[in-house]
Amino acid sequence: MRLAELSTRSGVSTATIKYYLREGLLPPGRRVTATQSEYDESHLQRLRLVRALIQVGRVPIASAREVLTALEDESLDHNSRLGTAVWALPHGPQAPEDDPATDAARHTVDALLRRLGWENAQAYGADSPAYRMLVTAVGTLSRLGYPCAVDDLAPYARSAGQLAVADLDLVERYESPDEQLEAAVALTVLYEPVLLSLRRMAQAEESNRRYGQGSSEA
Protein backbone atom coordinates (compact mmCIF):
# COMPACT_ATOMS: atom_id res chain seq x y z
CA MET A 1 0.00 0.00 0.00
CA ARG A 2 1.10 3.59 -0.55
CA LEU A 3 1.46 6.22 2.15
CA ALA A 4 -2.05 7.63 1.63
CA GLU A 5 -3.64 4.20 2.11
CA LEU A 6 -1.49 3.52 5.16
CA SER A 7 -2.73 6.83 6.59
CA THR A 8 -6.36 6.01 5.85
CA ARG A 9 -6.21 2.50 7.29
CA SER A 10 -4.26 3.50 10.42
CA GLY A 11 -6.04 6.77 11.15
CA VAL A 12 -2.66 8.52 11.38
CA SER A 13 -2.03 11.56 9.22
CA THR A 14 0.59 11.35 6.48
CA ALA A 15 2.56 14.13 8.17
CA THR A 16 2.67 12.17 11.43
CA ILE A 17 3.68 8.97 9.63
CA LYS A 18 6.54 10.85 7.95
CA TYR A 19 7.58 12.13 11.38
CA TYR A 20 7.58 8.60 12.80
CA LEU A 21 9.69 7.47 9.83
CA ARG A 22 12.23 10.24 10.45
CA GLU A 23 12.38 9.39 14.16
CA GLY A 24 12.97 5.70 13.45
CA LEU A 25 9.72 4.61 15.10
CA LEU A 26 8.46 3.11 11.85
CA PRO A 27 10.70 1.11 9.49
CA PRO A 28 11.07 2.51 5.97
CA GLY A 29 8.87 1.13 3.23
CA ARG A 30 10.04 -0.61 0.08
CA ARG A 31 11.22 2.04 -2.37
CA VAL A 32 9.33 1.81 -5.70
CA THR A 33 10.30 5.17 -7.21
CA ALA A 34 12.59 8.01 -6.25
CA THR A 35 9.79 9.66 -4.29
CA GLN A 36 7.41 6.83 -3.33
CA SER A 37 7.52 3.74 -1.13
CA GLU A 38 5.21 0.82 -0.50
CA TYR A 39 4.13 -0.34 2.96
CA ASP A 40 2.62 -3.59 4.17
CA GLU A 41 0.62 -5.03 7.06
CA SER A 42 3.67 -4.98 9.35
CA HIS A 43 3.80 -1.18 9.02
CA LEU A 44 0.13 -0.97 9.89
CA GLN A 45 0.69 -3.14 12.97
CA ARG A 46 3.68 -1.07 14.03
CA LEU A 47 1.69 2.16 13.62
CA ARG A 48 -0.97 0.80 15.98
CA LEU A 49 1.70 0.16 18.59
CA VAL A 50 3.29 3.58 18.12
CA ARG A 51 -0.13 5.22 18.47
CA ALA A 52 -0.77 3.26 21.66
CA LEU A 53 2.56 4.36 23.11
CA ILE A 54 2.66 8.00 22.07
CA GLN A 55 -0.89 9.17 21.50
CA VAL A 56 -2.64 7.16 24.21
CA GLY A 57 0.09 6.30 26.70
CA ARG A 58 1.83 9.70 26.33
CA VAL A 59 5.17 7.89 26.17
CA PRO A 60 7.99 10.27 25.15
CA ILE A 61 9.55 9.69 21.74
CA ALA A 62 12.88 8.62 23.25
CA SER A 63 11.19 6.06 25.53
CA ALA A 64 9.05 4.77 22.66
CA ARG A 65 12.22 4.25 20.63
CA GLU A 66 13.72 2.23 23.51
CA VAL A 67 10.62 0.04 23.66
CA LEU A 68 10.72 -0.63 19.92
CA THR A 69 14.45 -1.33 19.98
CA ALA A 70 13.90 -3.94 22.70
CA LEU A 71 11.13 -5.58 20.71
CA GLU A 72 13.45 -5.92 17.72
CA ASP A 73 16.42 -7.35 19.67
CA GLU A 74 16.52 -10.90 18.36
CA SER A 75 19.50 -11.74 20.57
CA LEU A 76 17.03 -11.99 23.48
CA ASP A 77 14.49 -14.74 24.06
CA HIS A 78 10.75 -14.08 23.92
CA ASN A 79 10.41 -13.47 27.66
CA SER A 80 13.46 -11.19 27.86
CA ARG A 81 12.38 -9.10 24.87
CA LEU A 82 9.00 -8.51 26.47
CA GLY A 83 10.53 -7.73 29.85
CA THR A 84 13.04 -5.29 28.36
CA ALA A 85 10.32 -3.54 26.35
CA VAL A 86 8.05 -3.13 29.36
CA TRP A 87 11.00 -1.85 31.43
CA ALA A 88 11.41 0.95 28.90
CA LEU A 89 7.87 2.23 29.51
CA PRO A 90 7.55 5.24 31.87
CA HIS A 91 7.14 4.13 35.49
CA GLY A 92 6.73 7.37 37.43
CA PRO A 93 9.03 9.06 39.97
CA GLN A 94 11.44 7.13 42.16
CA ALA A 95 11.39 7.18 45.94
CA PRO A 96 14.04 9.33 47.71
CA GLU A 97 16.79 6.99 48.88
CA ASP A 98 17.62 9.07 51.97
CA ASP A 99 14.08 8.76 53.35
CA PRO A 100 13.66 6.12 56.11
CA ALA A 101 10.18 5.41 54.73
CA THR A 102 11.78 4.20 51.49
CA ASP A 103 13.90 1.61 53.27
CA ALA A 104 10.89 0.42 55.29
CA ALA A 105 8.81 0.24 52.11
CA ARG A 106 11.49 -1.88 50.44
CA HIS A 107 11.37 -4.36 53.31
CA THR A 108 7.58 -4.49 53.06
CA VAL A 109 7.67 -5.09 49.31
CA ASP A 110 10.31 -7.82 49.67
CA ALA A 111 8.22 -9.54 52.34
CA LEU A 112 5.16 -9.33 50.10
CA LEU A 113 7.03 -10.92 47.17
CA ARG A 114 8.29 -13.72 49.41
CA ARG A 115 4.77 -14.43 50.64
CA LEU A 116 3.49 -14.59 47.08
CA GLY A 117 6.37 -16.76 45.92
CA TRP A 118 7.20 -14.27 43.18
CA GLU A 119 10.88 -14.96 42.62
CA ASN A 120 11.54 -13.64 39.11
CA ALA A 121 14.83 -11.83 39.72
CA GLN A 122 14.59 -9.81 36.52
CA ALA A 123 11.14 -8.47 37.35
CA TYR A 124 11.60 -7.94 41.07
CA GLY A 125 15.25 -6.95 41.44
CA ALA A 126 16.31 -3.54 42.70
CA ASP A 127 16.86 -2.38 39.10
CA SER A 128 13.30 -3.20 38.04
CA PRO A 129 11.25 -0.05 37.28
CA ALA A 130 8.06 -1.77 38.46
CA TYR A 131 9.74 -2.80 41.73
CA ARG A 132 10.97 0.74 42.32
CA MET A 133 7.54 2.15 41.49
CA LEU A 134 5.92 -0.17 44.04
CA VAL A 135 8.47 0.83 46.69
CA THR A 136 7.71 4.49 45.96
CA ALA A 137 3.96 3.92 46.28
CA VAL A 138 4.27 1.97 49.53
CA GLY A 139 6.62 4.58 50.95
CA THR A 140 4.11 7.32 50.14
CA LEU A 141 1.31 5.38 51.82
CA SER A 142 3.48 4.93 54.89
CA ARG A 143 4.48 8.59 55.13
CA LEU A 144 0.84 9.67 54.91
CA GLY A 145 -0.30 7.14 57.50
CA TYR A 146 -2.41 4.88 55.29
CA PRO A 147 -2.52 1.05 55.50
CA CYS A 148 0.35 -0.55 53.59
CA ALA A 149 1.41 -3.66 55.52
CA VAL A 150 1.91 -6.95 53.72
CA ASP A 151 -1.57 -8.10 54.75
CA ASP A 152 -3.03 -4.91 53.23
CA LEU A 153 -1.14 -5.30 49.95
CA ALA A 154 -1.55 -9.06 49.46
CA PRO A 155 -5.16 -8.97 48.12
CA TYR A 156 -4.12 -6.43 45.50
CA ALA A 157 -1.13 -8.55 44.51
CA ARG A 158 -3.26 -11.68 44.18
CA SER A 159 -5.74 -9.77 42.00
CA ALA A 160 -2.81 -8.56 39.88
CA GLY A 161 -1.72 -12.16 39.43
CA GLN A 162 -5.15 -13.04 38.04
CA LEU A 163 -5.01 -10.01 35.75
CA ALA A 164 -1.62 -11.15 34.43
CA VAL A 165 -3.20 -14.44 33.35
CA ALA A 166 -5.91 -12.53 31.48
CA ASP A 167 -3.27 -10.24 29.93
CA LEU A 168 -1.24 -13.09 28.49
CA ASP A 169 -4.36 -14.95 27.38
CA LEU A 170 -5.16 -11.90 25.23
CA VAL A 171 -1.60 -11.72 23.93
CA GLU A 172 -1.63 -15.39 22.89
CA ARG A 173 -4.51 -14.71 20.53
CA TYR A 174 -1.86 -13.33 18.19
CA GLU A 175 -0.06 -15.93 16.13
CA SER A 176 3.53 -14.81 15.59
CA PRO A 177 6.00 -14.04 18.39
CA ASP A 178 6.55 -10.53 17.01
CA GLU A 179 2.81 -9.81 17.02
CA GLN A 180 2.56 -11.15 20.57
CA LEU A 181 5.35 -8.87 21.76
CA GLU A 182 3.84 -5.80 20.13
CA ALA A 183 0.40 -6.66 21.49
CA ALA A 184 1.76 -7.20 25.00
CA VAL A 185 3.31 -3.73 25.07
CA ALA A 186 0.29 -2.04 23.48
CA LEU A 187 -2.17 -3.77 25.81
CA THR A 188 -0.05 -2.88 28.85
CA VAL A 189 -0.56 0.78 27.94
CA LEU A 190 -4.13 0.60 26.64
CA TYR A 191 -5.57 -1.53 29.44
CA GLU A 192 -4.27 0.59 32.33
CA PRO A 193 -7.11 3.17 31.98
CA VAL A 194 -9.54 0.25 31.61
CA LEU A 195 -8.35 -1.20 34.92
CA LEU A 196 -8.53 2.15 36.68
CA SER A 197 -12.06 2.79 35.40
CA LEU A 198 -13.30 -0.68 36.34
CA ARG A 199 -11.81 -0.39 39.81
CA ARG A 200 -13.65 2.87 40.45
CA MET A 201 -16.89 1.47 39.09
CA ALA A 202 -16.51 -1.62 41.27
CA GLN A 203 -15.88 0.59 44.29
CA ALA A 204 -19.12 2.46 43.55
CA GLU A 205 -21.01 -0.83 43.33
CA GLU A 206 -19.56 -2.13 46.57
CA SER A 207 -20.22 1.17 48.33
CA ASN A 208 -23.84 1.08 47.20
CA ARG A 209 -24.15 -2.52 48.35
CA ARG A 210 -22.77 -1.67 51.78
CA TYR A 211 -24.06 1.81 52.44
CA GLY A 212 -26.76 2.62 49.86
CA GLN A 213 -30.49 2.68 50.45
CA GLY A 214 -31.76 -0.77 51.22
CA SER A 215 -28.43 -2.04 52.49
CA SER A 216 -28.20 -3.61 55.91
CA GLU A 217 -26.04 -0.70 57.14
CA ALA A 218 -28.21 2.12 55.71
Rank of each mutant, 00 (worst) to 15 (best):
T102V: 05
A137R: 11
P193W: 12
D103S: 07
S42Q: 12
L190Q: 12
L144D: 14
E217D: 03
G92M: 00
R210K: 09
T14A: 08
E66T: 08
V138G: 14
D73N: 08
P27N: 09
P129W: 02
R22S: 13
D40H: 14
V135T: 15
E23Y: 04
P27G: 03
G24P: 13
G125Y: 05
L89D: 00
L21I: 08
S13W: 14
N208T: 03
V109M: 14
S80H: 09
L25N: 05
A130I: 14
N79S: 14
L116C: 07
D40A: 12
R209W: 10
A164P: 08
D152P: 10
R48E: 12
Y19L: 03
T16K: 02
R51G: 14
E5V: 11
R48F: 13
L195T: 06
V59P: 03
P177E: 05
M133G: 15
L25W: 03
V67E: 13
G161D: 11
L141P: 03
G139K: 05
E119D: 09
G92R: 02
L163G: 08
V194A: 14
A52Q: 03
V50N: 10
H43G: 15
A164Q: 06
H91M: 06
V56P: 02
L68S: 04
Y39D: 05
L3R: 07
Q203I: 15
T33Y: 01
R199K: 15
T33L: 01
A130G: 04
